[in-house]
Amino acid sequence: MLVSEQKPLEEILRSLEGEGRVFLLGCRGCAEACQTGGEKEVLAMKETLEGAGKEIAGWAALDFLCQKGLVKTGLYPFEDQIVSADSILTMCCGIGVQVTSSVVGKVTHPACNTISLGGSRGEWWGSERCLECGDCLLDLTGGICPLTACTKSLINGPCGGARDGRCEFEPEVRECGWQLIYERLKKLDRLHKLREISLPKDFARMQPPKDLRGTAFWSLGQRQEERTGDETLGTL
């Protein structure tokens, strides 16, 4: 799940400057769940933009704008409308905007900002987060990730700022990750793990491995050439 929020209207209008006819594209996946780009929001945007003097060439809300195959087939019925538009306003996360832009030969504007999840993955909200660091430390930290649970991503223990178990950064909403790690290890009778010094991390491992890039596994079945962004939809 990627979380998005709509950009301020002034910013959207600024990006549409000089473009009279706009095609609106929403997403029935995460953006619908976030109420930033489902059908309801697309229609509201239509009204707002018309109020601001824009002509809406047409609109669509497709399933999963992050899936290039679905976007290609999904947009076929709207080909004429898209061709007649000056630009497309895509209302979803940054992935969907990139997909639209690579599939359709038109200027594509983002209507939303994609918000940091701080390493959270999966469909459902939870506190467990992973930054995919490529060298998992959870064995030393009782199964709580220090990179995401600690605001400074400290890996050898807490800074001097924690108070009453809260992080110095936003104590109202944040617990100190190292307090949690400490308590967990204590409960598990593994406090000795804290004596081990973790060496500096190899952050190069946070880059996707070379041999994975561009493979079917990496792009979930999309062909390499499709990912170059040159191949556009039909006549568009």
Partner: peptide
Amino acid sequence: YADPFEFRVLRLAK
């Protein structure tokens, strides 16, 4: 003075 208090000496040792 910071929390967790018991961790503080351990961290010094580190």
